[in-house]
């Protein structure tokens, strides 16, 4: 359970981080997924670029109607209320149930999203929000809708050479309705089925079904949704039943 040898680099600024990435380095945020993968030798990078010390990597900024969450913001910071308002309350509830506190102290929202483990919490929850992932490349920043950011199992819309810089989410009204359910046999373990639903006033309810063996399923308008029809493609009967339960629970929870 020891990693294969790798070199370690700590870029001091974003151009240095992008240059390391261009040279083939594996970016590392909090290292709470990559760390175990290194130990298990599922990942054997020649060089790791530690993003944690980059200026502005962590932190939350309110910019008018948008809230920009630095990709390096930890789950624990979000759990402890780093994001203000109704949005912050929703995200804090999600963050509290990610893995365990010692993991949340280092694991980050951006690292988790960019890693794109299908069972991960932010992968399951963020597509429900009308927001963007902010990617940084050699050309500057570009915005990718969160509903289209994760494209498959451990696959994202990030192009080679791009880093996830921030998550931009809208300020939510207090009347925003939110429902989230995930199934874990033990608190903190990987989810076996996750669903969530966000209903904003004057907008159709958005629903996400995740922890599948594909990218999360995003339903832009869940009005009149038939949960059974949505899970027919899940071949394993146990997982299909769990997914169905997750859908029913969030639809009931948001009613």
């Amino acid at each position: 359970m020891k990693p294969a040898a790798f070199d370690y680099a700590r870029p001091a600024d974003w151009p240095a981080a992008l240059a390391l990435l261009a040279g083939g380095a594996r970016p590392m945020a909090g290292g709470q997924s990559l760390g175990p993968m290194l130990n298990l030798r599922l990942a054997q990078p020649e060089r790791v670029a530690d993003l944690r010390h980059l200026p502005g990597y962590a932190g939350v900024e309110v910019q008018g109607e948008a809230i920009r969450i630095g990709a390096g913001t930890t789950h624990a910071a979000i759990e402890d209320g780093a994001v203000p308002g109704r949005l912050g309350a929703i995200l804090a509830g999600v963050a509290r149930r990610i893995a365990y506190r010692p993991v949340r102290n280092r694991g980050t929202i951006g690292g988790s999203l960019a890693h794109a483990d299908p069972a991960a919490d932010w992968v399951a929850v963020l597509p429900a929000f009308p927001g963007h992932a902010v990617a940084l490349g050699p050309y500057g920043e570009r915005r990718i809708p969160l509903a289209r950011f994760v494209t498959g199992v451990f696959e994202t819309a990030l192009a080679p050479g791009e880093l996830l810089r921030a998550i931009e989410l809208p300020v939510l009204p207090e009347t925003a309705r939110w429902s989230h359910w995930k199934f874990c046999r033990k608190p903190g373990e990987f989810s076996k089925a996750t669903a969530c639903l966000l209903a904003l006033p004057d907008a159709p309810p958005r629903l996400v079904l995740a922890a599948l063996d594909t990218a999360p399923l995003v339903i832009e308008d869940a009005t009149g949704l038939d949960p059974a029809a949505l899970v027919t493609s899940i071949s394993d009967p146990w997982r299909r039943r769990l997914a169905l339960t997750a859908l029913r629970r969030v639809l009931e929870g948001a009613a």
Partner: peptide, 21 residues
């Protein structure tokens, strides 16, 4: 969780944190 120590004032897993970091 056996290896949990405090890193910069907060509990963390010392087995998945590598020397460089």
């Amino acid at each position: 969780g056996a290896c949990t120590v405090e890193v910069d004032g907060a509990p963390a897993r010392s087995c998945i944190l590598h020397a460089g970091a």
